[in-house]
């Protein structure tokens, strides 16, 4: 089974040379730490920076330089700043190559719910609806099941949706899955996890074809 860092490491393998990437809050933020260093990638944060760098050294933080999670960051050489309108032109206009975000639920049709639990948690969608409505390549990073042990990969989402038919790939603590027209297609197993473990933890339609390889992290 993978931990959060393991999920981030596996997703980092999906990041290709020349990609502009938008990372959501939580596990997705960790992905930046594990991208191969022999490729060129630029991270976009929707509050208005392309070419986002690591956290600043102590004492060098700048209140005018944050990411979408409101964390202090740095700008790498070649970085640019822009306003929110231009930022979402990059996103809606499909100039960003890859979007990685967390989810509470994903359906077998690629619907995603990640912004609201009615009556409990209402913080808002931030940029998530714009991101999922437009991105050509969306990878979801999440745990396979919730705290109660219930599957988060469902036939239909039970929570209010963030977007419909948009998720392409999911990396969980148990598996890598692709969302296809016929359901969740199992691509890889996490170390120490059997196909049966994944079948038991998946409520939506799961397609298992041939031998399923173990992930290489």
């Amino acid at each position: 089974m993978l931990d959060k860092i393991g999920i981030a490491k596996r997703i980092a393998q999906e990041v290709q040379d020349g990609y502009y990437v938008n990372l959501g809050i939580g596990i997705p933020t960790l992905v930046a730490n594990y991208v191969r260093d022999d490729i060129e990638v630029e991270f976009q944060s929707e509050n208005g920076i392309l070419g986002m760098g690591p956290f600043p050294y102590e004492g060098e933080e700048d209140a005018d330089l944050i990411n979408a999670g409101k964390q202090t960051i740095t700008a790498l050489p070649g970085a640019s700043f822009f306003d929110s309108s231009l930022s979402f032109s990059m996103i809606r206009g499909q100039h960003v190559d890859l979007t990685i975000l967390g989810a509470m639920e994903v359906s077998e049709e690629g619907d995603i719910a990640n912004w609201k639990i009615p009556g409990k948690m209402v913080k808002g969608m931030g940029g998530a609806m714009d991101l999922v409505a437009s991105a050509q390549n969306i990878i979801v990073a999440m745990m396979h099941t919730n705290k109660e042990g219930e599957s988060k990969l469902l036939k239909k989402c039970s929570l209010p949706l963030t977007g419909v038919g948009c998720v392409k790939k999911i990396v969980t603590n148990l598996a890598v899955l692709e969302v296809t027209e016929d359901g969740f297609k199992l691509l890889e197993r996490a170390p120490g996890i059997s196909v049966d473990d994944i079948i038991n933890a998946t409520e939506g339609k799961l397609i298992v074809e041939g031998d399923i390889p173990e992930m290489v992290i």
């Binding site: 929110s84 979402f88 809606r92 969608m125 940029g127 609806m129 714009d130 437009s134």
Partner: peptide, 25 residues
């Protein structure tokens, strides 16, 4: 949605009464 929020501001700035966006569909 954040992109819609900023665009609703920009539309007011730019003289557009409304616009179509994929966000939230």
């Amino acid at each position: 949605p954040q992109g819609t929020l900023v665009e609703r501001c920009r539309a007011a700035q730019s003289g557009f009464p409304a616009f179509f966006t994929p966000a939230g569909y």
